[in-house]
Amino acid sequence: MTMSIEITQEPPTHEDGEARLLIEVHDLVKHFGPVVALAGVSLDIQSSEVHCLLGDNGAGKSTLIKMLSGVHIPTKGDFFVDGKPVNFTSPRDALDAGIATVFQDLAMVPLLSITRNFFMGREPTRKIGPFSFMDMDFANHVAREEMRKIGIDIRDPQQAVGTLSGGERQCVAIARAVHFGAKVLILDEPTSALGVAQTSMVLKYIHRVRAKGIGVIFITHNVRHAYAVGDRFTVLNRGRTLGTFSKQEITLEELQTKMAGDKELQDLSDELGGTV
């Protein structure tokens, strides 16, 4: 027995209605000294799609997204954003190109207020004479408004982020990225530490973000979560892509098998009666 959540799929809001290619990478290779973390990965992300990146620990998911987000510089390979070749040397470059990453630590400071976190690194300023001040009224207003859109009943935008639940924090981090004009959103295991209700809150929100025309890269261990919102699935194994599949091409079970490296987990799953 499964209970289901219905999600109304809103039509894509971008002008032409056609999926546009946002990011394309070819044969991306990354070495850390003698260690080959990525041995040639190709991937493309379109607008209005949730592209799931699946793979076991050590498959190279983290390395890949760190290159997409400018944290690591690729050893070899081509990287195109909107069809133009790019060379990111810092996270700032990626942000400027519209690629925002929500890392597992969420880049949130629990002690700071929602407002201060929301605008961290991109504070709105207001000039008074020669001096530049942070525009707190505006920042509080925007933070409150954005929280309302997510459906978090915000009691006070100046309350510390530490008082929010895990799912709420995840949503705030995503909302922040979207607010600052992300065209591509990279979500690093956004549901890994969450309970069921919290997970469904985040998955719903991912779905809404997708409807805005944003391309979402959703990294996860959990094939169920991926299959719930994903349009395409790329499976990584030992630094290589095992392939990219659209939802029509692959079932949940097949995806599970692919991700497990085709063997052990499937055996285990059979042993335990198909529950892994």
Binding site: T2, I5, E6, V196, L203, R224
Partner: peptide, 10 residues
């Protein structure tokens, strides 16, 4: 409409 299947405790 799109169906998202999640476990029963949701």
């Amino acid at each position: 409409k799109k169906q998202i299947n999640i476990p029963p405790t949701a």
